[in-house]
């Protein structure tokens, strides 16, 4: 599927706290943003890693959870009507002849924008790959870390590994169309929704799925075609299968950012501390993903970086506009933008 390119002022890569606050700072300068994130919701690490965990170092909030911070930021940027594109990863950035940037995601969505802000935190969240020898060989067909098309699994012998919602949901959804389904988990306790657990247990009772207690130790097959996986539990069993779906959660990887030709320092993007611009003119990096002398990976540092970045983006986008520094407390024009009545 190819959609026509979306044209906007700024594309922000990453919808974590820094990406969200960047919308605010750019919005005050009348700059419009689209945000792209690989997760299915805003918040980045705050939403994925610690939604319920307290954060103690957000100025003026003695305590706030990752989710509360995300919700508050979403509320704060509402007046600027940011457009979100979730479940997508930016794969390519290219500078056009007219100085603008062309971006393409893994979902084939294209963007054309005047500036790019990389606020990608620890990189993109990617499914964990079980460290089984030779697993890469099977990733072109036999091993799937997500289900994009259910029809890929029709009539196949599936091995699903894990004990959370993804593992159980796909066990339930794919059992009717697969030839056989084997579920493997390291213990007979599941973190998934109770309803899913009960449905899965019923399928086990009815003999519609096989269940093994244990962990994967070896993949068998040849020429990229999987034939089975050894499971070690109380005893060792060889499960015959031609599709493997491992669900071990997500990990952060720098991902395609490394291929964009930006200067990196220990896998982080080098920026200056005046504008937080990268080695590529017009591309900025804020938050955990950037690096500069004295860098602290704190959300509050990312907020500061967003504010300074916005000034430079404004200079690029509105070169002739006289910049008058204003406070939201007293400026009627800023308050108008924020919808203050």
């Amino acid at each position: 599927m190819s959609n026509s390119p979306i044209e906007t002022d700024v594309v922000i890569i990453g919808a974590g706290p820094c990406g969200l606050f960047a919308v605010f700072e750019l919005g005050l300068l009348d700059i419009r943003c689209h945000l792209i994130d690989i997760l299915d919701r805003p918040g980045g690490q705050c939403a994925e890693l610690y939604p319920e965990k307290p954060i103690y170092d957000i100025p003026a909030y003695p305590i706030i959870s990752g989710q509360e911070l995300t919700d508050a930021l979403m509320e704060q940027i509402k007046p600027f009507d940011p457009q979100f594109h979730f479940n997508q990863r930016v794969d390519e950035i290219e500078k056009l002849e007219d100085g603008r940037f062309h971006l393409k995601t893994d979902d084939n969505q294209e963007f054309i924008c005047k500036n790019v802000v990389i606020a990608a935190g620890g990189g993109s969240f990617t499914p964990k790959r079980p460290p089984l020898p030779g697993i890469e060989e099977y990733e072109n067909g036999s091993v799937h870390y997500s289900v994009r098309r259910m029809s890929d699994f029709e009539g196949k012998d599936l091995l699903i590994v894990g004990g959370g919602d993804s593992a159980l949901d796909w066990t339930l959804n794919l059992t009717p169309i697969a030839n056989s389904v084997t579920l493997v988990h390291r213990r007979d306790k599941f973190r998934a929704a109770t309803d899913s657990v009960n449905k899965m247990l019923a399928l086990r009772e009815e003999g519609k799925i096989n269940f093994h207690l244990g962990q994967m130790t070896e993949i068998h097959g040849e020429n990229g075609e999987m034939t089975g996986v050894t499971i070690k539990g109380e005893e060792e069993v060889l499960v015959k299968c031609n599709r493997l779906l491992p669900f071990f959660g997500l990990t952060m990887k720098l991902g395609p950012v490394a291929n964009w030709g930006l200067n990196l320092h220990e896998n982080l993007i080098s920026v200056d501390t005046e504008k937080f611009e990268t080695s590529a003119e017009g591309i900025f990096a804020i938050g955990d993903i950037n690096s500069y002398p004295g860098k602290l990976k704190l959300i509050l540092s990312g907020f500061h970086e967003a504010a300074l970045m916005a000034q430079k983006v404004n200079a690029y986008i509105n070169p002739d506009k006289k910049v008058v520094f204003q406070y939201t407390t007293s400026s009627s024009s800023l308050q108008k933008k924020l919808g203050v009545k």
């Binding site: 964990k128 079980p130 460290p131 894990g162 004990g163 959370g164 988990h185 390291r186 213990r187 306790k189 973190r191 962990q215 071990f248 959660g249």
Partner: peptide, 11 residues
């Protein structure tokens, strides 16, 4: 912690 160990390998 036990739930999170489901995401580890060779537990």
């Amino acid at each position: 912690e036990e739930d999170m160990l489901d995401f580890a390998f060779d537990v």
